[in-house]
Simulated assay, not measured.
Amino acid sequence: MSKKGILAIVSICVVAIAAIALAVMLSITSGKLEYAQQELAATYITLQRTETAKAELEKKLTQTQSTLEETQSALEETHSELSQTQEILQNASEAARKIAAERNALQQDKSALEREKESLRAKLTEIESELQRIRVQSQRSIAAIQEKFKDTVGAVLDDAGRLRLDVKGKILFETGSAILSTEGKALLDAIAEEVLLNTNYADYAVRVEGHTDNTPIGGSELRNWNLSTERAIAAVKYLQVHAEVDAQRLAATGYAFYQPIDTADTAEAKAKNRRIEIILVPPQDFLSELLISLQKVMESVETKDSQ
């Protein structure tokens, strides 16, 4: 065989070997590629599962975060309620302490109130006894006055223990005049002797009040004021100078027609309203006011005691 033939055979063998090697390499590469594709597919599936798991985890994380926020809000609300409850408890405790202190103070004051009530009751009894004595004395005087002066002088004892003598104006003064008549002077002398200078009334104040009817004098109501006042002063002066009644006991006031005893528009009513009133005010007059005051105090004490 020639050299060229040998070289050709060798070349063919080399090509064949190269082809076989290439085929083997292709086969190996193809297997690796298929394996790689399988691995890639598996990896893709794993990735999808991972993404799904991630999404679920993120969802759970979101839910957990929401739950955490709700729990935090509830915790804060609970803390606020706890603070309010503590404040309420503190206020209640303080109120309880105050109530206990007030109760103790009331209990301590109870005995003092009882002593005060007993003292007031004793004073009331004393005052009522004195007023009763004044009433009895005045009733005797009224009986004597009515017996002596009959229809000339009216006498009454008011609720304050004051003896009121009602003298008809026409007896003391002529119509429209402030000058005492002779009959009026004699009547004042008799009243002074029987009552004003009586030792039972020696320390009584004597108020003389003048009153007119509602007919304007000389067409002017102002003159009614003048006349009522002038008549009261005339009576006071006479009692001081001629009947010798202590001036410090005497007082004169005019009321015109503003304190009528009969409001009817008749001649009889007008005659009643034209008058002089001599009022004997006992020095114990303050006892009546004191009696009213003490009764109010007693009512107040009783009210406090019942609370």
Rank of each mutant, 00 (worst) to 15 (best):
I145W: 01
L75D: 02
A100M: 08
D109W: 08
L68V: 00
H79W: 07
E147D: 02
I171K: 04
A100V: 07
S73P: 01
Q139Y: 14
I127Q: 00
V167Q: 03
K148W: 01
E126W: 05
E94N: 02
Q132Y: 11
Q139L: 06
R135L: 08
L163P: 00
S141T: 11
S119F: 10
Q146H: 12
T78K: 05
R115F: 06
E76D: 00
E114W: 11
S111W: 14
I99F: 06
L120F: 07
I99H: 09
E102H: 04
E130L: 14
G154F: 04
S119W: 15
Q90N: 04
S66W: 07
R135Y: 11
T78Q: 05
R164M: 15
D151K: 14
H79K: 10
E69L: 03
Q84K: 05
R164N: 13
R162L: 12
K110P: 00
K148H: 01
V167D: 00
I127V: 08
K148D: 05
L157T: 07
I171W: 05
A95L: 10
S66D: 12
L89H: 00
I142M: 12
T67M: 15
S83H: 00
S66M: 13
D159Y: 09
Q146F: 03
S141K: 05
A122W: 06
V136Q: 09
A160D: 15
S111Q: 10
Q90A: 06
F173W: 04
L172E: 02
N104Q: 07
A112N: 14
E69C: 00
A105P: 05
N91W: 04
L106C: 08
Q132S: 15
L82R: 05
E70N: 09
E114N: 13
I88M: 04
L106D: 13
R115D: 10
Q86Y: 11
A112D: 15
D151R: 14
Q146M: 13
V136L: 13
E77G: 02
I99W: 09
R162H: 08
E126P: 02
I127P: 01
E116T: 10
S73Y: 06
I127H: 00
I88V: 02
A112T: 13
G169V: 07
V153Y: 04
A143D: 14
R140W: 10
T152N: 15
A122H: 13
K170N: 09
Q108S: 13
L75Q: 09
R103I: 10
S119E: 13
K168T: 13
L68Q: 01
T67I: 07
A112R: 14
A122D: 15
L106T: 02
S83T: 06
L157F: 06
Q72G: 02
L106H: 12
R164W: 11
E102R: 07
L89I: 13
E81R: 08
T67A: 12
I99T: 12
L163A: 04
L120R: 07
A155K: 06
G161W: 00
E77M: 03
A144R: 08
Q139P: 09
A96I: 15
D158I: 06
R135W: 02
I88H: 03
R103H: 07
S111I: 14
K117Q: 09
A92T: 11
T71S: 08
E102T: 10
H79Q: 11
E128Y: 15
E147N: 09
L75Y: 03
